[in-house]
C-alpha cells in the first residue's frame, strides 16, 4: 500500500528558523477568471521575505493553464519592501500552475557556518554524513538553485494542468488535483529530481490556517481579527522508493512543501550542489469529512425550478380551495 510505502519519518516538530527558502504565495488561491491578481515570491521563510529576486536571476518563469505554457514578460514583475510580485491576469477557468526557477549561484561557507546551515534548514542527512565521515570541520563551496511553484484554482473548472511538469531540476508533482482534495482525504505528491523519482528524500510540510478562532487542547480561543496563524512547525516526511509522500489532509488552508536536495561534488571548484524545491496550494471547503473521514458532508440542493413549480402549484391549489370554501 502507498500509505505504508510512504512513511512518516517523524512527528517531531521542527522549529522554523531563519532560512532562505523560496515560495510562490497568494493571499487567495481561489481566483476568478479574467481578473487581475498578484503572486508573491518570498525569499526567506514562508512567513517573511527577506529580499527580492532580480529578474536576471530567473532562469524560467512559467504559467501553465489550458494545456499551454506561457512565459510572462519581465515587466510583469515589481518589488515592494522585500517581496517580489508577479502580476497575473487570469484567463479561462482552470487549475493553473505557476513556476519560477532560478539560475545557480554559489556561496562559500566555513565549516561551522555550513554545519549551522545544514542544521537550520533541516538537511540532516548531509549533517549526519559529515559527522560519520569526520568532515564537520571542512568548509564548503556550494552551488545552489531554487525551483518553486504554486497551484491555484481559477473559477470552477478543474483542469489537468496541475500534473504538467515544468521540467525543473527538482519538482513536486501531485498525483491528484489539490482542488479536488478536501479535509479527510489523502494527497500523494511525487518528488522528481532530474525528472526521475527521488527516493528517501526529506520533505518538510507546513500549513497555514487563516481563521478567527482555533483550538488548543480542547479549548477554543480567538485572536485579533487580522492575525494570521501559522502552525509554528513543519512535519517531516521521507519519500518512498517512488519518490512519493502521502499527506493526510487534516485541515483547510494553505499547504506548503519544501525540500533541499544537497549532494557532494567530487570534481570542479564546488564541493556541494543543492537544488531547492517548494510547492504551495490550498485546501478548500468544497466538502468536508469529519471524525477521521467517518462522515461525509456535501451540499444537496433542490433545483430551484422544482421548488418554484411545486410552490406555485401548492399556493394556487390552496387559493382556489379556500376561495371555493369561502
Amino acid at each position: 500500500m502507498k500509505r505504508i510505502s510512504t512513511f512518516l519519518l517523524s512527528l517531531v516538530c521542527l522549529a522554523i528558523l531563519s532560512s532562505h527558502d523560496m515560495y510562490l504565495k497568494l493571499d487567495q488561491y481561489f481566483l476568478n477568471p479574467f481578473t487581475k491578481t498578484t503572486i508573491q515570491l518570498f525569499n526567506g521563510t514562508f512567513d517573511r521575505s527577506e529580499n527580492v529576486i532580480d529578474r536576471d536571476r530567473m532562469e524560467d518563469v512559467s504559467i501553465i493553464y489550458g494545456g499551454e505554457r506561457i512565459q510572462p514578460s519581465a515587466s510583469k514583475w515589481f518589488e515592494k519592501d522585500s517581496i517580489t510580485f508577479l502580476e497575473l491576469e487570469t484567463k479561462e477557468a482552470a487549475t493553473y500552475v505557476i513556476g519560477v526557477s532560478t539560475k545557480a549561484r554559489s556561496i562559500e561557507m566555513d565549516a561551522q557556518a555550513f554545519n549551522d546551515y545544514l542544521k537550520h534548514d533541516g538537511i540532516t542527512d548531509m549533517l549526519d554524513k559529515r559527522k560519520k565521515d569526520g568532515t564537520l570541520d571542512t568548509p564548503a563551496k556550494e552551488l545552489y538553485a531554487k525551483h518553486v511553484k504554486t497551484i491555484v484554482q481559477v473559477g470552477d473548472s478543474l483542469s489537468r494542468d496541475w500534473s504538467t511538469s515544468l521540467n525543473y531540476p527538482i519538482e513536486f508533482i501531485p498525483f491528484k488535483n489539490p482542488y479536488e482534495v478536501h479535509v479527510g482525504h489523502e494527497l500523494e505528491i511525487q518528488l522528481l529530481y532530474g525528472q526521475k523519482p527521488l527516493a528517501n528524500q526529506l520533505v518538510y510540510v507546513g500549513t497555514q490556517v487563516n481563521e478567527l478562532s482555533h483550538t488548543h487542547d480542547g479549548s477554543t480561543h480567538s485572536h485579533a481579527s487580522n492575525e494570521t496563524q501559522e502552525q509554528a512547525y513543519l512535519t517531516s516526511y521521507r519519500t518512498n522508493e517512488n519518490g512519493v509522500i502521502t499527506l493526510d489532509i487534516k485541515q483547510e488552508g494553505t499547504w506548503y512543501l519544501r525540500t533541499i536536495h544537497l549532494e557532494e561534488l567530487s570534481e570542479g571548484e564546488f564541493t556541494h550542489q543543492s537544488n531547492w524545491a517548494t510547492l504551495t496550494f490550498a485546501i478548500g471547503k468544497g466538502h468536508e469529512h469529519e471524525n477521521a473521514a467517518t462522515t461525509h458532508k456535501h451540499d444537496i440542493k433542490i433545483p430551484t425550478y422544482v421548488y418554484l413549480l411545486i410552490s406555485v402549484i401548492i399556493i394556487l391549489l390552496l387559493f382556489f380551495a379556500f376561495k371555493k370554501k369561502g
Partner: peptide, 26 residues
C-alpha cells in the same frame, strides 16, 4: 406576487462556487 417573490431566487440560485471565487478575489 408569485413571479416577484420567486424570480430572484430562480435567477441566482446555485452560485456558491462563484461566490467563493468572488469573495476570494474581490
Amino acid at each position: 406576487f408569485l413571479i416577484l417573490f420567486w424570480a430572484t431566487p430562480l435567477m441566482a440560485h446555485d452560485v456558491t462556487s462563484k461566490d467563493h471565487a468572488l469573495l476570494a478575489n474581490g
